[in-house]
Design a binder for these strands. Structure first.
Lengths: 220, 220
DNA sequence: ACCCGCCTCCCCCGTACGGGGGAGACGATC
DNA sequence: GATCGTCTCCCCCGTACGGGGGAGGCGGGT
């Protein structure tokens, strides 16, 4: 059965774009739209979507409040994917703290958007930039190991991939990692690609950021 | 080729600690050790290290005299990093006057030690590197801005370079930074290169690491 | 008036990076 | 036995990255 999605954005253009991108997928179905946060809860109750793709900046009720309202008043709430224009939007962090499962840039490429919807639908959280911060915080700051392990499990990194991420977060190049791990550089590249894909990031720089932000590695 | 370091300290424990910290870095190699200042000159002549990490208080010949001797009797002398326990040690200032390139607190965190070695190896001088973290603590934890500014001054980053480092640490590519800063990509490249040089790091990944480790940017 | 630091932009060039494929070996699981 | 996931390695290919230069404008300081 397909992944059902509810679109919540005050701009019709954005909704149309998301719909076009998502409907092009055989396994994704857009079941409804809303133009503001106030309409979200009743719509979710009625349509029971798997995923809500929600703008943060909206009239009446913004994405943060709508997220909170959903998690509070709906049982078996849908996965919430925060949609935003800017990556450093204060609202984004607020929404993630409020319990959103991931975030998505409006200027993301269609494939990334589809990917994000599928991921959150499966229960994954999009690690970048900050959604696992909560996770790390829950485990307290002292126990870096447990936080790291939680990140591993959440992102489904294999042991080897975690090792590679750790070395990346120490500034090693692929060649240096290959030397240290006693494997070929092509092998390291494979692991790196897997890590980038699983973390939902673009390059090693963002992977390192995710590692720090999630508590997978800690300063000091 | 790696940065080669000679350790000079009368306490084996300190030498071992420094060795452990530095050897953990792929680009730093500890090439020798000495337990007193008298052995430094011949060792430097033989090993030709890039950096000498030298205690100030030592038997036979203290760090000040050893520094003077090095600069006097060795051509193309290594960079000298004075290692000390106390920040207010008149020996330290004596050593700096004698020609040392920087000083380092024994209780500094590993990342700071590594950073200091890289910096002096690059020709930067670290005249007053009281631990950046403690610096940040002094400013209180809330005011990340002032702590960040302190790091800026420490690494001699200009305001623009700091801005670029911040964006790097958020995962932006050069092109994205150019768009946001409304300048050309070549300009951004210039700033990035300057940041890498001043931080003594190799690539943007290591720059991001340095940004986190120094407290220039903070997780969460 | 002069110098110097900063910001801006330009060139060339080598290479590490990352995406797109695929494939064999091994162990665990069913 | 078949399947799955993991780890290993290989190919091609485009591009972002980073080093090496240089250069002009502009403001502050002496």
């Amino acid at each position: 059965m397909p992944v059902t999605v509810l679109l919540v954005d005050d701009e019709p253009l954005v909704r149309a774009g998301l719909r076009a991108v998502l409907e092009a997928q055989p396994d994704i179905e857009v079941v409804g739209e809303a133009a503001d946060g106030a309409a979200v809860v009743p719509l979710v109750r009625r349509l029971r979507p798997d995923v809500v793709a929600m703008d943060v900046r909206m009239p009446l009720l913004d994405g943060i409040e709508a997220t909170r309202a959903l998690l509070r008043s709906v049982d078996a709430p849908p996965k919430i994917l925060v949609v935003t224009t800017f990556e450093n939007d204060e609202y984004v962090y607020g929404a993630l703290r409020a319990g959103a499962d991931g975030f998505l840039l409006k200027r993301a490429r269609p494939a990334e958007i589809v990917h994000a919807v599928r991921l959150v639908a499966e229960g994954e959280s999009l690690l970048f930039p900050a959604s696992v911060r909560r996770l790390a915080a829950e485990y307290g700051d002292g126990s870096g190991n447990r936080a790291a392990r939680a990140v591993l499990e959440r992102a489904r990194l294999t042991e080897r991939e975690g090792e590679v991420l750790r070395l990346m977060a120490r500034g090693l190049t692929n060649a240096e990692m290959a030397a240290r791990l006693v494997v070929g550089t092509e092998t390291v590249k494979s692991h790196v690609s897997a890590v980038l894909a699983k973390l939902g990031v673009r390059d090693r720089t963002q992977a390192v950021i995710a590692a720090y932000e999630s508590g997978f590695v800690a300063p000091g």
